[in-house]
Design a protein around this nucleic acid. Sequence first.
DNA 1: GTGACCACCTGGCCGC
DNA 2: TGCGGCCAGGTGGTCA
Length: 273
Amino acid sequence: MPELPEVETVKETLKKQILNKKIVDVNIYYSNIIEYPSSDEFKKQIINQTINDIKRRGKWLMFELDDYYLLSHLRMEGRYFLRDKKDEILKHEHVSFVFDNDLELRYLDTRKFGRMHLIKKEEIEKRKPLSELGLEPWDKNLNITYLKGKYKSKKLPIKTVILDQSIIVGIGNIYADEILFLSKINPLKKAYELNDLELNDIIKNTKIILDKAIKSGGTTIRTYESSEGVHGRFQQKLLVHSKENEKCPNCNNTIIKIKVGGRGTYYCENCQK
DNA sequence: GTGACCACCTGGCCGC
DNA sequence: TGCGGCCAGGTGGTCA
């Protein structure tokens, strides 16, 4: 499933493929993908816009157009492919952006969870979803004081709170397990009970894990692969996630799987006390 | 403000 | 073999 490193990989791939392309038409085959505005308005507004840049904020892809930002969240299985106009529309292709050179950017999403917003440039910081996002992992303001302030009222397990995109963006279920393992923190520990050392470890290891994952092209797990069908190599480097009943790479204890906040959670009881 | 729960979705897997 | 039920998971909405 796409988390920050996967989105970063997709962004870089798309930048090589579609920068400066003009959108001359849009086909929407499943309108629920378009969250804002209505699909009719979306279509009307985006036609004749040129893709000038592609950025990322948290897990959101940001296509910078002339007058708008097209925000795209891949959620579980969203993917982009560049196709020829003549290529048949596949079962799970829900939106296609037609360019002026007979190519189309197709959005494919098996589970239809992905969402798109088209927002005027001048409103981008004020409007949802970007207005509600927390700090990037590499933001210089992400420090112990910031996390303490955010966590002080959080009585939920740290595993749940670390996924909260209004605090730190980009961490999903896979990397949350890896960050807590490296930090030697039990996923069930309440967020407000973490001490300065543990908070510092979370900040430090979030950057380490995400940096490594980006360098490896993200993680291909279950059904996800990036655009162009590129498989991420970070899966081979996972330490605990999806390693139920395997040996802990640190102490040889058996890695267990539990549910925390409804999410599958893998950890070592011996290392993460 | 906080936390629990549910809906959105489909394909894969498992048990019967 | 075929069927039904469960599971996976990011996010937003609703309710207590």
